[in-house]
Amino acid sequence: MKHTNNKTKSVKSLSGGTRIFTYICLAWALIVSLVPIVWLVLSSLKKDPLARPGFQLPESIYLQGYISTFRDLHVMRYFGNSMFIAGVSVLISVVMISMSAYVVARMEFKGKKIVNIMLYSTMFIPATALTYPVYNLINNLHLYDTRAALILIYSCSGIAVSFFVIKNYYDNIPRDLEEAARIDGCGYVQTWVKVIFPIARPGIMTAAVLAFLNNWNEYYWASLVLINRDKLTVPALLSTFTTSFNTNYNGLFSAMVIIILPPVLLYCIFSKFFIEALSGGAVKG
């Protein structure tokens, strides 16, 4: 892992054709990811995006849309909702899964195979197929239109990814540590809380970050179980955008920029972490 950088060959050593192809790919990557965002930011600065469409520069920089996004749209409230719902459900699911993953990684017991299959299968069960039963369940528990409903759904869904990330991490922890703790008189629970959990923290954090991003961006369930505008998460708020701004395009574009900002900022700060998590540790951020 530490000699990662030596592995990448300098582009200068490559033949002309390969080099050109590489540059074309990189240019494509930049265009695809930048065009929509640059256009969005540019449009948000125009007083009337209709009058100067496309990539024309604004006549003068107009920030009214940004001001009203904070003042009239109360965007901070929705950030708060998303933060609360995503945060609490990540906490629940990660603690829960790091407990079970430990048992599966370290102990032999009857039915272990079935537990494994159950957890593995969650990766391939399409959540949208479960729409009505879940919706019905939420109604029967009298949780409809509450934040608790979404927390319940997020805590229970997406088990597979967290499970595999955390279990892989456990597999790399030497067993001697537990034996030493056991000899010192620690019980099973104590061993896990005091010895294993702290050591596995990087793996658990990786799972938590990925789960948080997923929950923060989740739209399908959020739009299904939340109705009251005050409780909406950021993605659920978006479905009101197509109508609520009517012809105030500057307002729409400004609100969009502000809404995509937190995940992008979060990524810029923690990009090292994201990149190592997603690439299995082989790419340095």
């Binding site: 695809v32 990811s33 969005l40 969009m256 809404i259 995509i260 990009s271």
Partner: peptide
């Protein structure tokens, strides 16, 4: 370039949907 290329995936598909609608 690598970091920029990942940015659209950090944004929710709902938000990307609205951006493309525009």
């Amino acid at each position: 370039i690598r970091n920029i290329y990942i940015i659209p995936n950090m944004i929710s598909t709902a938000a990307m949907g609205i951006i493309f609608l525009q």
